[in-house]
Design a protein around this nucleic acid. Sequence first.
DNA 1: CAAGAGTTTGACCAAATGGTCAGGATCACG
DNA 2: CGTGATCCTGACCATTTGGTCAAACTCTTG
Lengths: 209, 209
Amino acid sequence: MDKAVSRTPRTRIQARNREAILDAALDVFSQHGFRGATLDQIAEVAGLSKPNLLYYFPSKEAIHVRLLSGLMDSWLDPLRHLGDAGEPVDEIVAYALRKLDMARTLPRESRLFANEIVQGAPRVLDMIEGPLKTLVDDKAALIGGWAQEGRIAPVDPHHLIFSIWATTQHYADFDVQVRGILTPEGDAHFAEAAGFLTTLYTNLLTIRP
Amino acid sequence: MDKAVSRTPRTRIQARNREAILDAALDVFSQHGFRGATLDQIAEVAGLSKPNLLYYFPSKEAIHVRLLSGLMDSWLDPLRHLGDAGEPVDEIVAYALRKLDMARTLPRESRLFANEIVQGAPRVLDMIEGPLKTLVDDKAALIGGWAQEGRIAPVDPHHLIFSIWATTQHYADFDVQVRGILTPEGDAHFAEAAGFLTTLYTNLLTIRP
DNA sequence: CAAGAGTTTGACCAAATGGTCAGGATCACG
DNA sequence: CGTGATCCTGACCATTTGGTCAAACTCTTG
């Protein structure tokens, strides 16, 4: 018998509390990184006592790992769909816009990931060098093919992907900076960013006579 | 009389040890963020005892603040020089390449800053909303002027600057990810990145007939 | 309603952490 | 060489931190 409750929830209470804990942990980990986060803080945000929290997860690290592995999947989903249909330039621009929208709607997830990578990715290096690299290499080959067929301008596919990640996640990860420089509040700047990125990648990839 | 040693070093030992501490702190803070870093760790990396470290700096926070404010200046220096001479497109591309070079040569500084911003910029928000915003608004006006004069294609200047920050700092902040995906070791990918970014911003800004 | 499964908590612990302090070692300089 | 200023350390402290545990509470279900 495991000391902690089983992974798949069997009761309503279990489902609710596990959800509350993961949500609270996302808050705290994304704001302070793994080492900067404390169980007391997570427990407080989740509205539970610390021992109760440790009844649902065996350790601080277990919560962090659970969040990260759960995130990786949904985070890479847009990339998996790149190239499904449509013209190459449109596909790549659409991918960038989908990533931008994720930065807008899921900023905590983006920052959780950013914290993990900036701090050396101690818990996801395997995934990066494994599945992530495989997927990226795959899509890079696809983009490289488009370039050779003359359907887009010739570019380094890997660095194109990096630049899309960088420009889109910037609006989540560096949110305070962006907001501090652009006075208007609200999410208006996301629409501007969408326009800018569309121009940026359209101009890069469109073949001119 | 202050408990801690004066800010301007008066002896050789003071200069050497203060330097060692700041260098060690840059290592540790950039890798773990403020809350994740410990004085013991900084002291060990610096080769000093913890009480000795606290002889030179009054607190953990003092070291962090010192690093950040010292960094801000040199970090924004390239932006100050934007527009000093030369054609607009060249100037902006040169700025991006200068930033990329800083990401290559000063990755710890970039990550220190990234950690601070991702975690909400609790210690530099004033600088962001003050001097940084002023400088950015200033340069944005310059770029906007170029656009209106027809010397570059019309773009949102603020988002252009954000995208340059994002694409260049990405190579420092997400270094492990970049290296995990690009198999070849060494710094070869920085040359590729320079080429890619040159194309990216040249194509964006050059006016086509 | 009884009883077992599932849930919650207060009290507790060892280790780590930021920081203090009195005194000793070392250095610079007259 | 002596002496005052600078530098360094071991011992110590209060608080925080991740984690444990036995006991108590509550929920479900026969």
